[in-house]
């Protein structure tokens, strides 16, 4: 029996949640080195957007990319192997958590720099008369980078088929947006004549039609759009660097947890099934990856 869309969306979000929890736990156990940026709390954004894209669309993500990658359909095992620096990782252990590539999915760890690159890929799609679009993920922190505004200007002038997704999780590392972002986020895009969609929700069923409208607008009009999602990050910026008040985070989580909201729409039987399926996937990913060899530097 095919599962419902409610189930599929929840599956994607739970896979992200459990993967990120496991990655953080493996850091504590010493299996992962370097750093990681968990997507915990923002899962509804990825589930909504990636269920609305076309197969050959171009995706550019940032340092907080695991959720996007898993929602794109990426293999959790290859991602786990990359986090462990294994030869079987997505990029053979060369990139690690924030520098991955698979099919049309790319990420880089420099704030803002990915925006013109995604715009260039959108320009290529347009010049080659394709209907594919580019989607680039930025955060409230990226709004401080100058190259973003250079790119918005050109994307609008040249009518590039690109969707700018702003996931405003309200903190740039430890800096609250009140001390980093002036004025209005949507007005930034509107000033360049870019069509803007804005949502304040962590309910995937509310976000999904909005994401689909934005994606469809870019594809049909061959013009840029912005999708601004006000969300919450429940975990630290990376690992142990959360300076925020614990109680506030706990009460926000109780109210806005996207998994809790979506879980209420599934039957007890479905919830049991999805937990078990995800747990098998994540266990398998990390166990297989940890048995894999490390890469060797070729001369």
């Amino acid at each position: 029996m095919p599962m419902s869309q409610d189930y599929d969306l929840y599956f994607t979000m739970l896979l992200i949640r459990r993967f990120e929890e496991r990655a953080l736990a493996e850091f504590s156990s010493g299996k992962l080195v370097g750093t990681t940026h968990a997507y915990i709390g923002q899962e509804a954004d990825a589930a909504a957007i990636f269920s609305s894209i076309a197969q050959d669309d171009i995706i550019w993500s940032n340092h907080r990319c695991h959720g996007h990658f898993l929602a794109y359909g990426g293999d959790p095992y290859r991602l786990a192997a990359e986090l462990m620096g294994k030869k079987t990782g997505l990029v053979g252990g060369r990139g690690g958590s924030q520098h991955i590539h698979w099919r049309n999915f790319f990420t880089n760890g420099i704030q803002g720099g990915i925006v013109p690159v995604a715009s260039g890929m959108a320009l290529a799609k347009k010049k080659l008369k394709s209907k594919d679009i580019a989607i680039v993920f930025i955060g409230d922190g990226t709004l401080g980078e100058g190259v973003l505004y250079e790119s918005l200007n050109i994307a609008s002038l040249w009518n590039l088929p690109i969707l700018f997704v702003v996931e405003n999780n309200r903190y740039a590392q430890t800096t609250p947006m009140e001390v980093a972002v002036s004025g209005s986020i949507s007005a930034r895009f509107e000033a360049f004549g870019i069509k803007t969609y804005e949502f304040e929700s962590s309910d995937v069923l509310e976000l999904r039609p909005g994401a689909k409208n934005a994606v469809d607008y870019v594809r049909e009009n061959q013009s840029p759009a912005a999708l601004i999602l006000h969300t919450y990050r429940f975990s630290a910026h990376s690992k142990g660097d959360d300076t925020r008040d614990r109680e506030t985070i706990t009460s926000i989580r109780a109210k806005f947890d996207p998994l809790r909201i979506q879980a209420s729409r599934l039957s007890a039987e479905e919830l049991k099934k999805v937990e078990s399926a995800v747990s098998i996937l994540v266990d398998d990913a990390f166990l297989r990856a940890s048995a894999d060899p490390f890469p060797v530097l070729k001369p």
Partner: peptide, 16 residues
């Protein structure tokens, strides 16, 4: 916009 035009060119190159 020197940074953006080199960035856009990076994207064009990645796309073939």
């Amino acid at each position: 916009s020197e940074s953006a035009i080199v960035g856009i060119s990076n994207g064009l190159a990645l796309a073939g």
